[in-house]
Design a protein around this nucleic acid. Structure first.
Lengths: 360, 360
DNA sequence: GTGAAAGCGCTAACAC
DNA sequence: GTGTTAGCGCTTTCAC
């Protein structure tokens, strides 16, 4: 009521209070708060000081309503049940914190039809921009966003249009490296657990697998490619088929770490040992990869970095600075751990020696 | 401009547009949209239909500014680098989706001083309520929230005041069960890796460990309790100390799964095998627990359920329905997997293995 | 440089 | 039952 400020009070201190206290009109306060240049320095100081003293905190909804920035960005993810997503989100969160932005999280729960509805709500709402991690069916609504000039960046999906700002990893190269590594170890029959075919990451990895076989003059056997779904269950089922082949593979390349987990399950079910009886490679290098037994050799995606990069891109977009390239590609690299070795037939090592190796 | 509606247009359709189209005043539209009873049914139908047809989506910031509900709740977490948090968040997210609420995510990045600032911003902002997962230092600002009558629920922390709505698991019972289980297997020297002492969950688990020893008439040895930090690294360091004792434990109870991961590391470094040479138990049952090798026997916390329950509580609080109990306690249960067995001394073990244990 | 005033889209009290 | 009106806290012309 009075002009006695209580910095511990959480009650709304508005721009009006600050104006009254510092003896200026509230539009001047607004100017100062928004970093408008042409304000007398002494005035600026006084206002800033008063705001601080009163414990003023901007009301974002009002600011946003009035056409300003909310300093909130939206994030649309398919689900939270995946270490992969978690890593990307960490990167985003970190970068956002640095820029003093807040995060609004939307989960589609893998419900395809929900995506457009969500996007519409988001865009009609408070956020200044939108980040999308592996959207399932973005073509329709992204066009709308673009027409509206609404800032957004897509993470880990590409190929659906030519204009969307995108951050991806070198899926092709990563898968090529992994396959080549297995080949160099001496493997000739390499099983492949594919991912969700609608996602570019999945198809690129498959293509690279085939390319690596081709380069090394290994003939392609369609039976060695089984469909997965980027989840543990799919990897398990695919691996079971592979292991039941008349001539089973000596190595399996799973399209991501979750699938590799399923491959491990199947291998164990068949009473086989990794890497002694069969080698396994994954993709992503999520936290689980190092924890699995044996630790999983996998293609590391710079997930946190992808999140950070996409966030920086988006923040620039919001500031009106379009990125030099619409599409930023980050490098993957192969992380060697204990899940691979030369196939048993070409090896002269004893079982004892081999199992020693696991202890690291 | 004209009254030609384009359902694909993402452009703002306001309550005004709906009012004009359906030939009523816009307050009537507001009434319909807010489920106000006393509107003629035919009017309600017409408005709803028009809104649908125009693709009306409520502007949350305006609604919130005008004093209504934003249907957004805030969530304050210490960090995203933990499977434990992820699980709880999944439960929250699920429940929120059901209730048609959105989520705003705040990460303190374990920065204690940031918590009050965040809370102030949050409360001054758009959210209808606040969920806090293991807050570090909540006493001061929770008092403020309460005085403001701002709805909030605390997850997995208690004991700092007597009025905060809280959801916790039976930490004491869970730890008691786990310790008893090890004792029943025949273990007498059981190491304990403690958690962050400021958190009630950590102290309760330690107390229960001691209580179980007492009940089974096993004398307590302070050297068997080593401090961890609920993280992998802390578990590793603590386990190393335990394994270096003159008479090392035959089993280690880690205060959570992350710590158990560190215990595994240390055990392997000592060239020992789990469970053959030493048994390990964790707490939480995060996704990693089942993936570790050997799969970790651990106390399952109903993490998703805790998230769901807390969310329901909060939603009721927002509706003005205080919960019957301020404090809801969910049961834990022991999940038996492959990381425990009877101690080697009661079985047949070579001297070689025992002496090996002392190295490093 | 700074103040006045018009909304942003909505809710809620108050009329009729 | 439904329309009218006054804000919520802020940004942003437009004056002076």
């Amino acid at each position: 009521m009075s002009s006695q400020p209580d910095p511990n009070d959480i009650r709304n201190v508005t721009i009006m209070d600050v104006a009254r206290e510092s003896g200026v009109s509230y539009s001047t306060v607004s100017r100062v708060l928004n970093g408008y240049e042409f304000v007398k320095d002494s005035t600026r100081q006084r206002v800033l000081e008063t705001a601080e003293r009163l414990g003023y905190v901007a009301n974002l909804q009002a600011r946003s309503l009035a056409g300003g920035r909310s300093r909130i960005i939206g994030l649309l993810v398919p689900g939270l049940d995946n270490a992969y997503i978690g890593e990307v989100v960490r990167g985003i969160d970190e970068e956002l914190a640095r820029a003093n932005y807040d995060l609004m999280l939307y989960t589609t729960h893998r419900h395809r039809g929900k995506e457009p509805v969500y996007v519409k709500t988001i865009v009609n709402g408070i956020v200044d921009g939108l980040l999308l991690i592996v959207p399932l069916d973005p073509v329709a609504y992204l066009k709308n966003l673009r027409e509206r000039q609404f800032p957004y960046v897509v993470i880990d999906h590409q190929g659906f249009d030519d204009f969307s700002p995108t951050v991806v990893a070198t899926n092709w190269q990563g898968a090529y490296d992994a396959t080549s590594y297995l080949i160099q170890l001496g493997h000739r029959r390499i099983g492949f657990v594919a991912g969700t075919p609608e996602l570019s990451s999945a198809t690129e990895r498959l293509n690279a697998y085939q390319a690596a076989l081709y380069t090394h003059e290994i003939s392609f056997d369609a039976a060695l490619v089984q469909n997965g779904d980027f989840q543990q269950e799919g990897g398990y089922l695919a691996a079971k088929i592979l292991l039941n082949l008349d001539v089973p593979p000596t190595a399996i390349f799973a399209s991501n770490d979750s699938s590799a987990l399923g491959v491990y399950d199947a291998v164990h079910e068949f009473g086989l040992r990794i890497p002694h009886d069969i080698s396994v490679v994954g993709f992503d290098d999520t936290l689980q990869a190092a924890v699995m037994y044996p630790p999983l050799t996998t293609v590391r995606q710079p997930l946190m970095d992808m999140g950070r990069t996409a966030t920086r891109m988006l923040l620039n977009l919001i500031k009106g600075q379009p990125p030099p390239n619409h599409r930023i590609v980050l490098p993957t690299n192969l992380v060697l751990r204990g899940s691979c070795q030369a196939p048993a037939t070409t090896s002269v090592q004893s079982t004892a020696q081999l199992s020693e190796r696991r202890m690291k």
